[in-house]
Protein backbone atom coordinates (compact mmCIF):
# COMPACT_ATOMS: atom_id res chain seq x y z
CA UNK A 1 0.00 0.00 0.00
CA UNK A 2 2.88 2.29 0.76
CA UNK A 3 4.38 1.85 -2.67
CA UNK A 4 0.99 2.51 -4.21
CA UNK A 5 0.82 5.81 -2.38
CA UNK A 6 4.31 6.59 -3.51
CA UNK A 7 3.30 6.09 -7.13
CA UNK A 8 0.35 8.40 -6.70
CA UNK A 9 2.56 11.09 -5.17
CA UNK A 10 5.21 10.66 -7.82
CA UNK A 11 2.55 11.01 -10.45
CA UNK A 12 1.40 14.23 -8.87
CA UNK A 13 4.93 15.58 -8.90
CA UNK A 14 6.21 14.43 -12.25
CA UNK A 15 3.21 14.44 -14.40
CA UNK A 16 -0.10 12.74 -14.83
CA UNK A 17 -2.16 10.55 -17.04
CA UNK A 18 -5.49 12.27 -16.95
CA UNK A 19 -6.91 15.29 -15.21
CA UNK A 20 -9.62 17.81 -15.82
CA UNK A 21 -8.62 21.30 -14.75
CA UNK A 22 -7.31 24.55 -16.16
CA UNK A 23 -3.96 22.98 -16.98
CA UNK A 24 -5.75 20.38 -19.09
CA UNK A 25 -7.70 23.11 -20.85
CA UNK A 26 -4.48 24.91 -21.74
CA UNK A 27 -2.92 21.71 -23.00
CA UNK A 28 -6.04 21.12 -25.01
CA UNK A 29 -5.67 24.56 -26.57
CA UNK A 30 -2.02 23.94 -27.43
CA UNK A 31 -2.75 20.54 -28.93
CA UNK A 32 -5.77 21.89 -30.80
CA UNK A 33 -3.57 24.49 -32.47
CA UNK A 34 -0.86 21.92 -33.18
CA UNK A 35 -3.21 19.40 -34.75
CA UNK A 36 -5.09 22.03 -36.72
CA UNK A 37 -1.89 23.52 -38.15
CA UNK A 38 -0.47 20.10 -38.98
CA UNK A 39 -3.61 18.66 -40.57
CA UNK A 40 -4.29 21.76 -42.64
CA UNK A 41 -0.65 21.91 -43.71
CA UNK A 42 -0.71 18.28 -44.78
CA UNK A 43 -4.01 18.75 -46.59
CA UNK A 44 -2.81 21.83 -48.43
CA UNK A 45 0.74 20.92 -49.28
CA UNK A 46 0.72 17.15 -49.58
CA UNK A 47 -2.76 15.86 -50.38
CA UNK A 48 -3.88 18.58 -52.74
CA UNK A 49 -0.84 18.78 -55.04
CA UNK A 50 -0.64 15.02 -55.36
CA UNK A 51 -4.33 14.80 -56.06
CA UNK A 52 -4.21 17.51 -58.69
CA UNK A 53 -1.21 15.76 -60.22
CA UNK A 54 -3.13 12.50 -60.34
CA UNK A 55 -6.28 14.12 -61.71
CA UNK A 56 -4.28 15.89 -64.39
CA UNK A 57 -2.55 12.65 -65.28
CA UNK A 58 -5.88 10.85 -65.50
CA UNK A 59 -7.19 13.61 -67.77
CA UNK A 60 -4.10 13.41 -69.92
CA UNK A 61 -4.38 9.66 -70.23
CA UNK A 62 -8.06 9.79 -71.09
CA UNK A 63 -7.29 12.48 -73.68
CA UNK A 64 -4.61 10.27 -75.16
CA UNK A 65 -7.04 7.38 -75.22
CA UNK A 66 -9.61 9.52 -77.00
CA UNK A 67 -7.00 10.66 -79.51
CA UNK A 68 -5.98 7.07 -80.12
CA UNK A 69 -9.63 6.12 -80.63
CA UNK A 70 -10.08 8.96 -83.11
CA UNK A 71 -6.94 7.94 -84.96
CA UNK A 72 -8.15 4.37 -85.12
CA UNK A 73 -11.52 5.46 -86.46
CA UNK A 74 -9.77 7.61 -89.07
CA UNK A 75 -7.54 4.77 -90.08
CA UNK A 76 -10.50 2.41 -90.36
CA UNK A 77 -12.48 4.81 -92.56
CA UNK A 78 -9.38 5.38 -94.67
CA UNK A 79 -8.95 1.65 -95.04
CA UNK A 80 -12.56 1.30 -96.14
CA UNK A 81 -12.00 4.05 -98.72
CA UNK A 82 -8.92 2.30 -99.97
CA UNK A 83 -10.75 -0.99 -100.21
CA UNK A 84 -13.44 0.63 -102.33
CA UNK A 85 -10.79 2.27 -104.47
CA UNK A 86 -8.93 -0.98 -104.84
CA UNK A 87 -12.08 -2.72 -105.99
CA UNK A 88 -12.67 0.08 -108.50
CA UNK A 89 -9.14 -0.23 -109.73
CA UNK A 90 -9.56 -3.95 -110.24
CA UNK A 91 -12.69 -3.39 -112.26
CA UNK A 92 -11.02 -0.72 -114.29
CA UNK A 93 -8.08 -2.96 -114.91
CA UNK A 94 -10.32 -5.72 -116.16
CA UNK A 95 -12.22 -3.38 -118.45
CA UNK A 96 -9.04 -1.76 -119.73
CA UNK A 97 -7.56 -5.14 -120.39
CA UNK A 98 -10.66 -6.24 -122.24
CA UNK A 99 -10.69 -3.11 -124.33
CA UNK A 100 -7.02 -3.48 -125.11
CA UNK A 101 -7.60 -7.08 -126.08
CA UNK A 102 -10.37 -6.12 -128.43
CA UNK A 103 -8.31 -3.36 -129.93
CA UNK A 104 -5.36 -5.63 -130.37
CA UNK A 105 -7.45 -8.25 -132.07
CA UNK A 106 -8.91 -5.69 -134.40
CA UNK A 107 -5.50 -4.34 -135.20
CA UNK A 108 -4.17 -7.80 -135.74
CA UNK A 109 -6.87 -8.63 -138.22
CA UNK A 110 -6.29 -5.39 -139.97
CA UNK A 111 -2.60 -6.09 -140.17
CA UNK A 112 -3.19 -9.59 -141.42
CA UNK A 113 -5.54 -8.47 -144.14
CA UNK A 114 -3.15 -5.75 -145.12
CA UNK A 115 -0.29 -8.19 -145.24
CA UNK A 116 -2.34 -10.55 -147.34
CA UNK A 117 -3.19 -7.81 -149.73
CA UNK A 118 0.42 -6.80 -149.92
CA UNK A 119 1.49 -10.37 -150.50
CA UNK A 120 -1.06 -10.72 -153.30
CA UNK A 121 0.17 -7.57 -154.84
CA UNK A 122 3.77 -8.75 -154.63
CA UNK A 123 2.86 -12.12 -156.06
CA UNK A 124 1.06 -10.53 -158.99
CA UNK A 125 3.97 -8.30 -159.72
CA UNK A 126 6.35 -11.22 -159.51
CA UNK A 127 4.23 -13.19 -161.91
CA UNK A 128 4.23 -10.31 -164.33
CA UNK A 129 7.97 -10.00 -163.97
CA UNK A 130 8.46 -13.66 -164.64
CA UNK A 131 6.27 -13.51 -167.72
CA UNK A 132 8.16 -10.54 -168.95
CA UNK A 133 11.42 -12.32 -168.35
CA UNK A 134 10.21 -15.38 -170.18
CA UNK A 135 9.16 -13.29 -173.10
CA UNK A 136 12.48 -11.55 -173.08
CA UNK A 137 14.25 -14.87 -172.93
CA UNK A 138 12.19 -16.12 -175.87
CA UNK A 139 13.06 -13.06 -177.85
CA UNK A 140 16.74 -13.49 -176.99
CA UNK A 141 16.65 -17.04 -178.06
CA UNK A 142 15.10 -16.13 -181.35
CA UNK A 143 17.75 -13.54 -181.90
CA UNK A 144 20.43 -16.00 -181.05
CA UNK A 145 19.01 -18.53 -183.40
CA UNK A 146 19.02 -15.97 -186.15
CA UNK A 147 22.60 -15.04 -185.27
CA UNK A 148 23.53 -18.68 -185.29
CA UNK A 149 21.94 -19.35 -188.57
CA UNK A 150 23.75 -16.33 -189.93
CA UNK A 151 26.97 -17.64 -188.55
CA UNK A 152 26.33 -21.08 -189.92
CA UNK A 153 25.58 -19.69 -193.23
CA UNK A 154 28.78 -17.63 -193.11
CA UNK A 155 30.84 -20.70 -192.22
CA UNK A 156 29.28 -22.81 -194.87
CA UNK A 157 30.10 -20.38 -197.42
CA UNK A 158 33.62 -19.58 -196.24
CA UNK A 159 34.77 -23.16 -195.44
CA UNK A 160 35.64 -25.86 -197.96
CA UNK A 161 33.29 -28.41 -199.01
CA UNK A 162 35.30 -30.93 -197.24
CA UNK A 163 32.97 -33.40 -195.77
CA UNK A 164 35.09 -33.93 -192.81
CA UNK A 165 35.52 -30.27 -192.19
CA UNK A 166 31.82 -29.83 -192.71
CA UNK A 167 31.14 -32.41 -190.03
CA UNK A 168 33.57 -30.89 -187.59
CA UNK A 169 32.17 -27.52 -188.32
CA UNK A 170 28.70 -28.68 -187.66
CA UNK A 171 29.81 -30.42 -184.44
CA UNK A 172 31.66 -27.29 -183.46
CA UNK A 173 28.68 -25.16 -184.08
CA UNK A 174 26.40 -27.53 -182.32
CA UNK A 175 28.70 -27.60 -179.31
CA UNK A 176 28.90 -23.82 -179.38
CA UNK A 177 25.15 -23.71 -179.75
CA UNK A 178 24.86 -26.16 -176.84
CA UNK A 179 27.16 -23.96 -174.92
CA UNK A 180 25.13 -20.95 -175.72
CA UNK A 181 21.90 -22.71 -175.10
CA UNK A 182 23.19 -23.94 -171.82
CA UNK A 183 24.37 -20.51 -171.02
CA UNK A 184 20.99 -19.10 -171.73
Amino acid sequence: MGSFLFILEAAELNGRILGFDIEFLMELGIQWLNTLILTLFLAKFLYKPIKTFMVKRAERISKQLNAAGDAERNALSMKADYDVKLRDIEQERVSVLHAANLQAKEKMEQIITEARREADKIRARMRKDIEMEQERAKADMKRELIDLSFLLAGRFTTASLDRQAQDTLIAETISELGDIKWLT
Partner: peptide
Protein backbone atom coordinates in the same frame (compact mmCIF):
# COMPACT_ATOMS: atom_id res chain seq x y z
CA UNK B 1 3.90 5.96 -17.45
CA UNK B 2 2.69 9.40 -16.59
CA UNK B 3 2.86 12.29 -18.99
CA UNK B 4 5.96 14.09 -17.68
CA UNK B 5 6.04 17.84 -17.33
CA UNK B 6 9.11 19.24 -19.02
CA UNK B 7 9.06 23.03 -19.07
CA UNK B 8 6.77 25.38 -17.12
CA UNK B 9 5.06 28.00 -19.24
CA UNK B 10 2.85 30.18 -17.05
CA UNK B 11 0.51 30.00 -14.06
CA UNK B 12 -3.24 30.55 -14.02
CA UNK B 13 -5.22 30.48 -10.74
CA UNK B 14 -2.60 28.39 -8.97
CA UNK B 15 -2.27 25.92 -11.82
CA UNK B 16 1.03 25.98 -13.66
CA UNK B 17 0.82 25.09 -17.34
CA UNK B 18 3.72 22.97 -18.54
CA UNK B 19 5.07 21.80 -21.82
CA UNK B 20 4.48 18.12 -21.33
CA UNK B 21 6.20 15.14 -22.87
CA UNK B 22 3.33 14.56 -25.29
CA UNK B 23 3.34 18.17 -26.50
Amino acid sequence: FTNHRIWPLFTIKGHTVYITESI
